[in-house]
Design a protein around this nucleic acid. Structure first.
Lengths: 81, 81
DNA sequence: TTTCATTTGTCCGTATGTATT
DNA sequence: AAATACATACGGACAAATGAA
């Protein structure tokens, strides 16, 4: 199971992305679910907002999530809705 | 054909504006026709009034429509009436 | 004239992501 | 990394304009 550790040389943003990736793939968020906001990640992991943004950027590039300005970041539905 | 999708990263207000823009340009509303009210858009698309107002603001900026307080938003006539 | 419904105008606050410095 | 401004979106409240009953 992916975890976040200060002693892991892996960039924190990658570590957090790994955690969310697992939650998404395990179905913990389900389709169309909204993920934590950038602010949530900032508070939960004690990172900068930049770092939180990078996390979502990674997941977006994998097609795992979709970010909607002014709304949040979501797990997209299977096909086109 | 322009459509509105929750999963399109394009702002909803822009998406709805695109739909109305097509209807106007295709002549579906004809000159001097009244477009749906802000309230209509709110109900039809399930958006906030803020969003509906933004839609018309975009179309006004393009000169495609004219908004009259207390009356509605209209497709302007060809020449000055 | 008065009343009422409809419609747009304006302001408030909150939340979220974007972009720049 | 932090601050700032900006764009988008939702919800509520009240005002003003219009037109019909």
């Amino acid at each position: 199971m992916a975890t976040v550790s200060d002693w892991d040389p892996t960039p924190i943003s990658r570590q957090i992305a790994a955690v969310l990736r697992e939650k998404i793939k395990s179905g913990e968020y389900g389709p169309e679910a909204r993920l934590p906001s950038e602010k949530d990640l900032v508070q939960e992991y004690g990172v900068a907002r930049e770092t939180a943004r990078r996390v979502f950027r990674f997941l977006r590039e994998e097609g795992l999530v979709v970010t909607l300005p002014g709304r949040g970041t979501f797990v997209p539905p299977k096909d086109g809705v």
